[in-house]
Design a protein around this nucleic acid. Structure first.
Length: 588
RNA sequence: GCUCCCUUCGUCUAGUGGCCCAGGACACUGCCCUCUCAAGGCGGGAACACGAGUUCGAGUCUCGUAGGGAGCACCA
């Protein structure tokens, strides 16, 4: 794609201060800064309005005049791309460095605004997520889906879900369902679909036939062995394995043959150029490309063909997908051209690696989104983590859904691959555990309790448990485990804890005193806290001497949330019973 | 092998030629707080892959080197 300059700012500067070697830099800058307000509108455009480059005025322009090109379409990438384009020029006429612009005083500044010239400016944005159902939704796919979703939401467009199931061997209904479930759990709702490629076979057939009829594709009959031999021969010559175009210009009559495929007649000359929103300008010589198969001998279209037909039919304007597809893009663009269709924008996202910097794999880390649910992560924590992996907005770490939608821009995504860091995810997860409304968290927590085999019907309200534990755990799974003590009797006593905190001189007195006060007090954490303080005051003991025996009595261990919460959550009856048991144990 | 892509603290990142002897966050670590464990508060160590070039000035622009990745299917 090319950059469409639709606004153009013309700034004219008079040269008053040319930086000289050794000259105080400050003096020059001061001159420049004084000039800034004069050209505020144009300067704003330069700074914020996607400046594509700065040029000396043409031949007729006054000496020192500077013209800035401002593009409407994108951000940083467009600028970089535009700079690359203007770069080739003679050494003698170097473009003035931008720093030097500040050393010039403007005599006039005007911006010409043209109405959007191409249809793409007006068209609503449509993105799509197109997984192939050969397994669960993995982390990389989830981020791609998130970015697609975000981009369509921010720009008021539509998000389409498409299932790419033309690989009949590996696609399963279970995988489709797993992906749908994961998308729903993450809350990435789609506006259209899911569309299934297997439902669209007739359409692919028709488009392929049209291409053949138009001479833009042709039948070929090589066997797989012949193709393989071709590839080996090319490799042996040190070349890239490519189809040799044997049937390209044969014009053989159509015949039935188990090896019959349709190949796309790829241009042999020239190059394919596109502006990737993430990677910047990508250029590909057509001589690197061969005539790819678009229809297989089994009667199904290949991926590269089906995506293009689908994306055209579904009106996709932004193709956002994994890095591994960059190499396919030039081929696909050629197909767009052959079909006379408008080429969408492309954005290829860098990979997500594991902690060691290797490809994510089941062996080293959790890869399925639903596995993260099982491990006790919140969907919005995962989303927040994912959105920051390869993208940022200044120093901000925490993003609500609304903020993500408002702030995200696919053009700001980084180019380099990033590593998945479970510890940072855990931190985010705890952040949301601490700040979310416990009531809102309760259903997901109850799901984890049930999953841990805990019957929460007779125990404390899940929301109360969340409040007591959220400062102490990173995941809901961990929280469910720690919550067990309030839903079931103490299963195991920590001997060390018993010896240290129950079998001592003061424990019985403490437990007895606390029991007396607990019998009467109002059953909420705050009054219970006051009971503990009263006990300490009455017995003239430190809080440690009071809280620890009670803690052991309540949990059988020396670790738990604050003592008032620990007691409160047990409920009055159970708390008193456990204290009585502990007194017996201390005396026995 | 060929083509394309990438490179700032251990990790995620800020960075648009002077605001940078590089900022934030996670992790690590010291102190404070404290009924345990945490959480929290205040500190600390820690990076521009390397080499040339352009420039008065380079993390930022150019070229090269090294390292890493992806693709090269009748898989998506």
């Amino acid at each position: 794609m090319h950059v469409v300059p639709w606004r153009r700012a013309e700034l004219q500067f008079q040269c008053v201060a040319q930086p000289q070697p050794q000259q105080a830099v400050g003096a020059v800058l001061r001159t420049a800064n004084a000039a800034l307000p004069v050209l505020a509108p144009a300067w704003q455009a330069l700074l914020h309005g996607h400046c594509a480059g700065i040029e000396h005025g043409g031949g007729e322009a006054e000496p020192g005049a500077i013209v800035a090109w401002v593009v409407g379409a994108g951000g940083r990438r467009d600028r970089q791309a535009a700079e690359k384009q203007r770069r080739p020029r003679g050494r003698g006429e170097r473009t003035p460095g931008r720093g030097r612009v500040r050393a010039l005083v403007p005599v006039s500044a005007k911006i010409h605004c043209f109405a959007p010239s191409s249809s793409e400016e007006i068209m609503t944005v449509r993105t799509r997520f197109a997984p192939s159902p050969t397994g669960f939704l993995h982390i990389g796919g989830a981020r791609t889906a998130l970015y697609c979703w975000l981009e369509s939401r921010r720009r008021g467009g539509q998000f389409v879900l498409r299932i790419e199931d033309t690989d009949r061997e590996r696609s399963t209904d279970a995988a489709v369902q797993a992906i749908l479930d994961a998308m729903q759990w993450l809350g990435l709702n789609h506006d259209e679909g899911p569309f299934y490629q297997t439902d669209r076979l007739a359409r692919y057939r028709q488009v392929a036939d049209d291409l053949v009829a138009a001479g833009k594709a042709y039948y070929a009959y090589e066997t797989k062995e012949e193709i393989e031999a071709m590839r080996d021969a090319a490799m042996a010559r040190g070349e890239k394995p490519r189809y040799n175009g044997h049937y390209r210009d044969r014009d053989e009559p159509l015949r039935d043959d188990p090896n019959r495929v349709i190949r796309f007649r790829n241009p042999t000359e020239g190059a394919v150029v596109f502006e990737d929103k993430v990677k910047g300008r990508v250029e590909w010589s057509n001589s690197e490309l061969d005539d790819l198969v678009i229809f297989r001998s089994d009667g199904w279209p290949t991926y590269n063909f089906a995506v293009v037909v689908d994306d055209i039919d579904m009106g996709i304007t932004e193709v956002i997908r994994g890095d591994d597809h960059v190499n396919n893009t030039p081929r696909q663009i050629n197909i767009y051209h052959a079909l006379g269709a408008r080429v969408p924008e492309f954005a290829h996202l860098p990979m997500i690696l594991d902690k060691e910097g290797k490809k994510l794999s089941k062996r080293t880390s959790a890869v399925s989104v639903m596995e993260y649910r099982d491990d006790g992560f919140l969907p919005h924590a995962l989303l927040n983590y994912l959105v920051r992996l390869g993208w940022s907005h200044g120093d901000q770490e925490i993003f609500s859904r609304e903020e993500m939608i408002a702030l995200f821009d696919i053009a700001d995504v980084n180019k380099a691959a990033s590593r998945f860091d479970t510890e940072k995810l855990a931190w985010l997860n705890q952040h949301y555990l601490k700040t979310d409304d416990p009531q809102a968290l309760a259903p997901e927590f109850a799901w984890h309790l049930a999953r841990a085999g805990i019957d929460c019907s007779g125990g404390p309200a899940p929301a109360d448990v969340i409040v007591a534990l959220r400062d102490r755990v990173h995941t809901l799974k961990e929280m469910a485990e720690r919550a067990r003590i309030w839903y079931a009797p103490i299963a195991e006593w920590d001997d060390k804890a018993v010896v240290k905190h129950l079998k001592n001189d003061t424990a019985v007195a403490v437990l007895d005193a606390a029991r007396g006060l607990l019998l009467e007090c109002e059953w909420r954490p705050e009054p219970i806290h006051r009971v503990i303080e009263q006990t300490a005051a009455r017995l003239e003991l430190g809080m440690g001497k009071i809280a620890q025996p009670l803690r052991v009595a309540m949990t059988g261990t020396q670790v738990s949330p604050s003592i008032e919460h620990t007691i409160y959550l047990a409920g009055r009856g159970e708390a008193l019973k456990r204290i009585a048991d502990a007194i017996a144990m201390a005396q026995g």
